[in-house]
Design a protein around this nucleic acid. Structure first.
Lengths: 154, 154
DNA sequence: TGACATTTCCTGTTATAACAACTATTGTTG
DNA sequence: CAACAATAGTTGTTATAACAGGAAATGTCA
């Protein structure tokens, strides 16, 4: 009996351990799903991390957030928030302002144009999300979430 | 009640859907785990995709594999196998040879030095793997694997 | 055979990831 | 207050990701 992942990566030997098999499946599945999302966002000229930033800034509202806070809220670690915001600013999707009280801080806000783009992206993302993850029922997804949270440390 | 991921990304609003929450957890967990692996491999000057290539070539044995086959067996899609092998060849971890029968093909093999490095890496990776994924029991891991395979299409 | 398509790899280019060093500003402490 | 530490952001550099295009070899078929 050869399982699905073994077939996919044309591996003849068994996995070393269940832990190993689980981890490889995690990598491959996330890569698979992210690739779909990346493709779906591409017509809008937006990458998944950029989409993530825009959503974070929308959530923050008019008061905005400073670079460090944006980095902390990202789903995946991003080492260079500055240049990421540079690109978004150049496209007028966000605006930035140097702090007056503490001149080290730079606060970023989403623009009207950014909000408009987001409302399109949300629809695309939401549809894709339900299409991709909808193959599992609610109970399975709930269990999946629990397992994943556990893997990040309970 | 605010859940773990919401706290992590400092999100005040609920998730739009269970599918959404599951996907975000997948992203974050894989990023978290991959970062640990990347850190563990760093002292050896090897990235996770490079480690993946070396394992693939070891599995292929002395007959080696051509670029296309390596790409097909990678866990995550890699668009540029050529230059990835360039770097590994420069470090004498793999060697390459242009095909004689079909001169379009280039076959790569792992070197003795590559095999030696791999045996160190395997120990590190295996230990880390069990440490990270060992927080879940066998049954949970088996269910996780099943769910992930399903998400890639049954 | 000869034109054309296909396959395989390589090359060029831009964007992003990762990491380290640096500047400017603010906080802390003797 | 002056020296130092800490924080926030920027800049520089290298490696990798992503994508498009090109060159060489092989396959196909009229």
């Amino acid at each position: 009996m050869v399982n699905k992942l073994q077939m996919e990566i044309k591996q003849s030997k068994k996995f070393e351990s269940l832990e190993h098999e689980a981890f490889l499946n995690l990598q491959r599945t996330t890569d698979f799903l992210m690739r779909k999302v990346t493709d779906a966002l591409k017509p809008f000229g937006i990458t998944p991390p950029q989409y993530n930033v825009l959503r974070i800034l929308r959530g923050a509202g008019e008061s905005g957030l400073i670079n460090r806070e944006i980095g902390e809220r990202m789903l995946t670690f991003v080492p260079d928030v500055t240049r990421m915001l540079d690109r978004l600013e150049k496209r007028d999707l966000v605006c930035r302002e140097r702090g007056v009280e503490d001149r080290r801080l730079v606060t970023a806000c989403i623009t009207e144009e950014g909000l408009n783009l987001l409302s399109d992206l949300d629809q695309v993302f939401s549809d894709l999300n339900k299409e991709l993850l909808g193959v599992c029922n609610k109970r399975t997804l709930t269990e999946l979430i629990g397992t994943l949270e556990r893997l990040r440390g309970a």
